[in-house]
Amino acid sequence: MQALYINGSSRIGALLSAPSFSGLAVADEPDYTEYLPKNSLRRLDRMSKFGLYTTYAALAAAQCEQPAGIIMGVGQTVSQILDEMVRKMIDQQEGLTNPTSFMNSLLGTAAGQIALQLSCNGYTNTHTQRGFSVEAALMDAVLQLASCPEQEFVVGGLDVTHDSYVDLAKNYGHFASRSAPQVERQIAEGAVSMVVSGVPGAHSKACINGIYTIFLTDEAINNWSAKELKQALFNGAGPCVDLVLSGRPLGNEAQSIYDRVLTEYEGNTPISAFKERTGEFPTATAHGIYLAVESLSTQAAGEVNSVLVINNFGDRYLSAILVTRP
């Protein structure tokens, strides 16, 4: 895989100290007027605000004026605006609804808003595969940069949660491979945008050297071996990273998968459970990558040179991202 250089990144999200399985960890929202005109804010849905703010902040960090394209991953597809739109449709017995609500409820709208605000006429795409939404967006960026590696793309992950989502999860259970009404999950939300290129630049802070995903079918859940991950990212070599950012959930799901993955690292490599801080949502991998970039930027060279971000969503989506110094 061609390396992806991260030249700037930005995050909106919660940073938790005490997780809870009953409520929602709401993101700490920034002052959007830092980048967005006040009069435009009321027309934007929350997901678009998340996407726009983090995009502008990441572009500023990368000192990039104009990206070549926008690729977003959206995890939770029951957005707040969709929830409101369906409720209104029911309340008003299919009377005329608000066109802006309909538009904002479409999952591709946030990336479209970013392209519009940046006047970017390049490649635009939105991946919505729950726990692979960000991973697919990153892979998409690799494909786009293959022919023009010096270009810069905005890649990100967006998840907006709301009280109704929590109610739905309570009534119908979290996403999991089997009926799992008792799954314990700290539901959260957030956004990360990154400016990436195919070649290192003056502002490159880190580099993604490998992306591994496995969709665990019922058969694969039992048969999958962590050797496959090791083969894909390290050509079968032993643990050779300085830090593991593990998405091992706080609750009771996907534990056996992490047992298989982390055995090799325990005792040899520091392991930090990042979702204890960010909470759980499908695009949490992006937050693991963001924290990996922070670690690489703040630790001295020689202490942390490579970080493995491992994440799950439910017990069917498993991914691993290898992040190194540029």
Partner: peptide, 28 residues
């Protein structure tokens, strides 16, 4: 809540195909 998700269709197809090496749903 699960069946209505945009990703559900691809998940069902991936299971039916016996697993896939790359999986994405695109919503543009």
């Amino acid at each position: 809540f699960q069946v209505g998700d945009c990703a559900f269709c691809a998940e069902f197809l991936a299971d039916r195909l016996g697993g896939v090496n790359y999986l994405s749903t695109i919503s543009t």
